[in-house]
Write a protein that binds this DNA or RNA. Sequence first.
DNA 1: TCATACTGTCATAAATTTGTAACGCTTTAT
DNA 2: ATAAAGCGTTACAAATTTATGACAGTATGA
Lengths: 242, 242
Amino acid sequence: MAVTILIVEDELAIQELIALNLKRAGHMVLCAASAEQANKMVSNVLPDLVLLDWMLPDMSGIEFARKLRREDRTKAIPIIMLTARIQESDKIAGLEAGADDYITKPFSPRELLARIKAVLRRRLPEMSDEIIEMGGLRLDPTTHRVHVYPINEPEKLSEIALGPTEFRLLHFLMAYKERVHTRSQLLDRVWGDHVFIEDRTVDVHIRRLRKILEAVDKENLVQTVRGTGYRFSVECDKESIE
Amino acid sequence: MAVTILIVEDELAIQELIALNLKRAGHMVLCAASAEQANKMVSNVLPDLVLLDWMLPDMSGIEFARKLRREDRTKAIPIIMLTARIQESDKIAGLEAGADDYITKPFSPRELLARIKAVLRRRLPEMSDEIIEMGGLRLDPTTHRVHVYPINEPEKLSEIALGPTEFRLLHFLMAYKERVHTRSQLLDRVWGDHVFIEDRTVDVHIRRLRKILEAVDKENLVQTVRGTGYRFSVECDKESIE
DNA sequence: TCATACTGTCATAAATTTGTAACGCTTTAT
DNA sequence: ATAAAGCGTTACAAATTTATGACAGTATGA
C-alpha cells in the first residue's frame, strides 16, 4: 500500500518516532509541526490519511480538522486524532465527530499501525493498493493494469485496456463485490463527491465497461439490479425459475 | 438501506460532519438548523429517522420531538437525541419526549453509526441491512438477493428472481414475520408515503410473490388472514385443527 | 498543432414492471 | 340457501427503467 500519510505533531521526538514506524511499514510520510505547515503540505500533496495531534501551537487540531473537512479537495481524507490522556470532554465536543478514529498517547507503534490499517480498510478499501482477483479478472491498482484469464487456466493471461473512469469503476465494484450500488453511490465514490453529473451517465460507463468485458467472455460479472443499481458478482445471475 | 435521515442541529460544523459521515455510510441526508426548518422538511419528505440536537435556537429539541410524536404521519419515526449534557434528568426528559436513544457529545462517527444501526434494527427492521433468514429463505438486502433452500439442507441454495416491488414486499413481510398487515399498512410502508393506489393492487403483488415462491415449494410462507390482510409466517397455516 | 482517446448527454429502442379491471371461487351472515 | 363480501387469478396497456449508439466538447500526448 503506497499510502501517503501526513503527520501533524509539534513534539519533534514523537513526530520522528511515528514517522520512523510508518516508513518502516512501507508508507510515504509527510511531517508538519504546525497547522500552518500542514496546510502548505496539503496544498502540494494530497495525503491519503492524516495523523493529527489535537494540541497544536498555532491552530488547534480541531480547527485544522474542520478546515480539512470543509474543503472539497480534502473532505474525504481519513483523520486519526492523537490526544493526550482524557481531555475535558466539553472542549473536544465535535472534534471527534470529524475524526475517523482517535488514539490516546502513549500508544505503541503496533496499535497505531493497526488503527491506520483499520481506518483505511473501512474508509477506502478501493484505495488500498491490493491486487484484487476474482472471476477470472486480476486488477492491480499499483500497475494500473487488468488481466483476464479463463477461470481454470490462470496461466493464459491477457491484458485488457480500460479508460480511466472504467478502471476506477471496475476497481470500486470489485473492491465491494456482491454489493449493489445505486447510481448516486457510484457517482459519489467513483467520480467523487459533489459532481454534478446525471445519474444516467453511470449507465453509459457501465455499458462501456461491459463491452470491454464481453470481448473477453466475462459478460456476467457486472450485473444490473433493476430498480436499484449495479453489482459486481462472481455468482451466476439469478436463474429465475420459469 | 436507502435510509433517509434528518439532522436537526444548529451548529453548522457539527451538522456537516455528521452529514458527511452518514452520507459516506450510504444514507440519504437532510439537514435543518432549527425546528422551524425541520418542520418544513418533514412536511415535504418523510425521513426514516431523526437526529435531534437537544438545544435548538427556536424550539427546544424535546418540544420538536413531542410534536413529531403527536402527529400521525410522523409518530412512528425513530428519534435519536444529541445532547452535550450528561445529566440524568436530561436523559429522562428526552426519553419521555419519545426519543429512542440519545447520544452525548462528543461522539465518534463509529458510535453514531452503531446507534443508528441499533435503533433501525429495533424500530425499522426492514431498513436495516441485515440478512433475514427463515423458513428456508435467505434475503440479503446488501446484495439484493434472495436464496431458497430445503429446510434440512442449507447447502442446496438457489437464487430466485423478484421484481423490485416483490422484493420490498417480501423484505417487509419477513422483517415483521408472524404479524398481520392490512393492505393500507403495506401500501404505506412498502410502496411509500402518500401513494394513491388501490388496496386491491396489493393482492396482485402478493399473488406475484406467491407464484414465485410456489415454484420453489415455499407456498405456505405468505398467508392470508381473511378480513384483515397478509402475514409472513413460518408456522403452518391453521392446519392444527382438521 | 494535430490526432487520438475520453467524457457526459441525448434520443431512441428494448425490456420489465406495475396498476387496474374483470371474472369466478370461497367464506360469512342472514 | 342465498346474497354479500372478501380473495385469487388473469390479461393487458401504461409507465418506468435500462440498454445502446451517436455526437460534440475536452483532454491528452506525440
